[in-house]
Each structure stands twice: as structure tokens, then as C-alpha cells.
């Protein structure tokens, strides 16, 4: 932090900051504060005005079954977002991190899903899950597993799992990229040697490679958790937020606010979602600033 200091008027940096900071405050920070405020209000339809109701929205939440459905689904999202993309992304990064020709093409191709919007991804996966003509059921039937074929998006028991799978499909390439960056600090030969020496492979992996990758792992886990808590687009596109059994906090907030016009309750849900996310945001920031100090920037 001590590196670059222009000494002139105190106002010089602020003249650069004024506009961007003002824009950021108006569209990001003031809204955050406002949402906290709205969470304690309710629109009174008889009086045509918004009234303060204290913690009533939060109290109502604890008796709202649908809120707990959303919370539970978010937990499922979170678990799968940590348990699948982290090890799989690491494995694929190790696989692609080598000196063989053509590995760049593999990386590029594998990364493609990351560049697509959930609107597109959702549309495509809708046909994969199609109960009659969908690819998944077709494969299951043709391999003699007809018993497993089911209406993936039509059965409340499997809906969330089916949606999470789509999210995971897009998340794995992202985690791979993060690990590939982390692997830059491990010599390629070391990783390859670890693969060749079958016997000591596991030892080298756990004692040499994993410790080096620890920062990448922390960032990957934190980011995956934050992403899982933000999940909305997939659910909107694939269920049109009409499947209540698949709802998560983000989509429940959306339906409460914009379909039922219950802004107060919607804001209260957003506040809970925010508070859950906040702890992970703090981990991320702490990690980032620490890494920066270590690198001496």
C-alpha cells in the first residue's frame, strides 16, 4: 500500500473517484440499505400506503413452509456446488495441465459452457430432460435402465437435482480454470511425475500438490458457495418459477415481490439471503487482501 503516493491536494484522488463512486453508491449500496428498510414494512392495501411492521415479515418467514422449501433447496445447491465441481474441476485441471500437444484445444472446448447464458443453457437442457423424447431418458431406456427414466422436471423429488446438475455442468469448467491458474505454481514435470510413479502418486498429490493449491481451493469453494446462493436464471428459465418445489431463496424472493407484489416480504427474504452470503463474501475479501499482501503489491 505504501508504494505509490502522489502528494498534491487531498482532493485529487477524489476527483477521479467522485463519479464512479457516486454511481456505485446510488445503484448498489443505497439499494442494499433500502432493502433492509423494506424488510420491516408491508404494503397496506386498504390504506394505500406502506406501513412499518417491525419484525413481522421475519416472524412470518419462520412459519412459512415455502420459505423452508427454498432454504432447503439452496442448501442442496450449495452442497452439490462444493462437492462436485471442486474435486472434478481439480481432476480435470490436473489432466489438462501437461506438456502434451493439443491440450489447449481441450481446455478451450471444455470451457465453452462458461461463456453461455443460462437462458441458452436452460433451453438446451429442457430437451435433455424431456420425459418422452429427451436425451437422458432415451439413453436410460436404450441401455436397459428404463426404470430410472422419469419426468425429471415434472417430479418434485427430482426437480432440484435436475436443475443443480445444469448449474454444475457450467460450474465445473470455471473451477477448472481457477485450478489451472493455481497449478501454474507447480512445475508440470512434478504433476506428470506424480502420475507416472503409481506407488507414490497419492502421497505426492496430498503432500505436494494439494498444499500448493490450497489458496485456489479456498477461492473455488467460496466462489462456488456464493454462486450457489445466487442461483436464479436456471430456475427461471427451466421452471418459469412456477414449480414451487424447486424454488430457492432467490426465486422465492422474486415471486413474492413481483408476482404477489409483496415487496416487504420479498425484501425480508433477500435480507436473509444476503446475510447467509455475507459471511462467505467476508472470507473471500479476507483471502484476496491477504494474497495481495503476500505478493507484495
Amino acid at each position: 500500500m505504501t508504494k505509490a503516493v502522489f502528494k498534491k491536494g487531498w482532493w485529487v484522488p477524489w476527483s477521479f473517484l467522485a463519479l464512479p463512486l457516486a454511481v456505485y453508491l446510488i445503484w448498489v449500496y443505497i439499494p442494499i440499505i433500502q432493502s433492509f428498510g423494506y424488510a420491516f414494512t408491508k404494503r397496506d392495501s386498504l390504506l394505500y400506503k406502506t406501513v412499518y411492521i417491525g419484525f413481522d415479515n421475519f416472524a412470518r418467514m419462520f412459519q412459512d413452509k415455502q420459505f423452508f422449501v427454498a432454504l432447503k433447496n439452496n442448501l442442496v445447491w450449495l452442497l452439490y456446488f462444493v462437492l462436485v465441481p471442486i474435486p472434478l474441476g481439480l481432476f480435470i485441471a490436473m489432466l489438462f495441465n501437461n506438456s502434451f500437444k493439443g491440450n489447449r484445444i481441450y481446455k478451450t472446448l471444455f470451457y465453452l459452457p462458461m461463456t453461455l447464458s443460462f437462458a441458452i443453457i436452460g433451453t438446451i437442457w429442457m430437451w435433455i430432460y424431456n420425459p418422452d423424447a429427451g436425451f437422458l431418458n432415451m439413453i436410460l431406456r436404450s441401455t436397459g435402465l428404463s426404470d430410472l427414466a422419469r419426468p425429471w422436471l415434472g417430479d418434485s423429488r427430482f426437480m432440484t437435482g435436475a436443475l443443480v446438475a445444469v448449474g454444475v455442468w457450467r460450474q465445473v469448467p470455471y473451477i477448472m480454470i481457477l485450478y489451472l491458474a493455481g497449478l501454474q505454481s507447480v512445475p508440470v514435470e512434478l504433476v506428470e511425475a506424480a502420475l507416472i510413479d503409481g506407488a507414490s502418486w497419492w502421497q505426492r498429490f496430498t503432500r505436494v500438490i494439494l498444499p500448493v493449491l490450497a489458496p485456489a481451493t479456498i477461492v473455488s469453494i467460496t466462489i462456488s458457495i456464493i454462486d450457489s446462493l445466487r442461483a436464479f436464471d436456471i430456475i427461471y428459465v427451466m421452471t418459469n418459477t412456477k414449480a414451487r418445489a424447486a424454488e430457492v431463496l432467490a426465486s422465492y424472493m422474486y415471486t413474492s415481490s413481483f408476482q404477489y407484489q409483496d415487496y416487504g416480504y420479498g425484501s425480508a427474504i433477500a435480507v436473509i439471503q444476503f446475510l447467509i452470503t455475507l459471511s462467505f463474501i467476508l472470507v473471500y475479501i479476507n483471502r484476496t487482501l491477504k494474497a495481495e499482501q503476500e505478493s507484495g503489491l
Binding site: A4, F6, Q34, Y38, R230, A250, A270, Q273, Y284, I285
Partner: peptide, 28 residues
């Protein structure tokens, strides 16, 4: 390029803002 008191705090504000759930901003 400038060392001033709130530098670090403003940086943290920018970083934190990019991670918050969008739902928090939607109604406002």
C-alpha cells in the same frame, strides 16, 4: 496510485458489492 485514508475501505466496498445477491438490489 494515491495513498489516502479511505483507499482500502473503498476497494473493499467495490469488491464486496460485486458478490452480493442480486435480489438485494432488485426492488430498490
Amino acid at each position: 496510485f494515491y495513498g489516502f485514508k479511505l483507499n482500502r475501505m473503498i476497494l473493499v466496498m467495490f469488491i464486496a458489492g460485486m458478490l452480493i445477491p442480486f435480489q438485494m438490489l432488485m426492488i430498490p
